[in-house]
């Protein structure tokens, strides 16, 4: 059983400047204190340039903090001898799966990380087949990745990370390049892994509708953590979102307009089903 009160990733007084930055007075990230708990699904929103991707790279030890520290399973990300271990705990999924798939078949691609760990071939084979089965990729194992659909490619990238038995998956706008079916496919896959296998997820997105199923939503703006809380609190706070140049999802935006027009809708509506329910209710009452 996953102990959800246990800390998995922790950032303390984290500051990051990109090297050669013109004004060190405006770092890419500053004053970040944040803990990701075991098994937690965290959604990270913020305008372009707010530091979301930088934070993910710090979590994965691709960048080292300028000040403060990041610990993954208690290991500091500047502990160079243990970086491989950190990356095994925290796998990363990028925006464009084409940048992440390296082998000539799906099978080899999923095995790539395991081969780098120099695991015995029988163990590699077993893990590849296990994750392929879990993600419904078995029939594609011998296909070249570049002939797959976008959603399938992204699932292969997830499979490659999953084969490493990570404790956390970091995803940087994983659906940006996908069609609607691919988007649903990837989100369902990741939600399933989170719920059933207790794998923590940190999901960067520009789409608030992708954040509604998270356990906690974080908003970054100009390198600072400006708000965090359950999705129904954060995603329904339109004045806050608008003040950072963000929009709410269609439900939240529409509900706000309808409240102005005198519709009696509870605050914190973030799901379409809820909005439809309350509108029907108010229609039937009258």
């Amino acid at each position: 059983m996953v102990n959800r009160s246990e800390i998995m990733i922790e950032a303390k007084d984290l500051v990051y400047h990109y090297p050669g930055e013109e004004e060190p007075s405006s770092p890419a990230l500053s004053g970040i204190n944040l803990a990701v708990n075991r098994g937690e699904y965290l959604a990270l929103l913020g305008p372009n340039g707010s530091g979301k991707t930088t934070l993910m790279k710090l979590f994965n030890a691709l960048l080292a903090p300028s000040e403060g520290e990041v610990r993954v399973e208690g290991i500091s990300t500047i502990d160079e001898g243990r970086i491989t271990e950190i990356r095994r705990y925290c796998g990363m999924i990028f925006q464009n799966p084409d940048n992440q798939l390296v082998a000539t078949t799906v099978e080899e691609d999923i095995a790539f990380g395991l081969e780098n760990l120099a695991l015995p071939p029988a163990e590699i084979r077993k893990r590849v087949i296990d994750v392929a089965r879990l993600l419904g990729l078995e029939h594609l194992l011998l296909q070249p990745p570049h002939l797959l659909s976008g959603g399938e490619k992204q699932r292969v990238a997830i499979a490659g990370v999953l084969a490493m038995r990570p404790h956390c998956i970091l995803m940087d706008e994983p659906t940006a390049m996908l069609d609607p079916a691919g988007r649903r496919d990837v989100l369902k896959t990741v939600q399933g892994l989170n719920r059933e296998q207790g794998i923590a997820v940190v999901h960067v997105t520009h789409f608030p509708e992708e954040a509604v199923f998270a356990d906690r939503v974080i908003i970054l703006n100009q390198g600072r953590l400006v708000r965090q809380g359950p999705p129904e609190n954060v995603l329904s706070d339109l004045p806050l979102l608008h003040s950072f140049g963000l929009q709410g999802n269609a439900v939240v935006e529409l509900a706000a307009l309808l409240r102005e027009d005198g519709f009696d809708l509870p605050p914190q509506l973030i799901h379409s089903r809820e909005l439809v329910h309350y509108l029907c209710l108010s229609e039937r009452k009258s």
């Binding site: 913020g46 305008p47 372009n48 925006q95 706008e173 940006a176 390049m177 520009h206 608030p208 140049g245 963000l246 929009q247």
Partner: peptide, 11 residues
């Protein structure tokens, strides 16, 4: 796909 990777304001 002109808005891929852009935030809601830029979109």
């Amino acid at each position: 796909e002109p808005t891929a990777g852009l935030d809601s304001f830029s979109r």
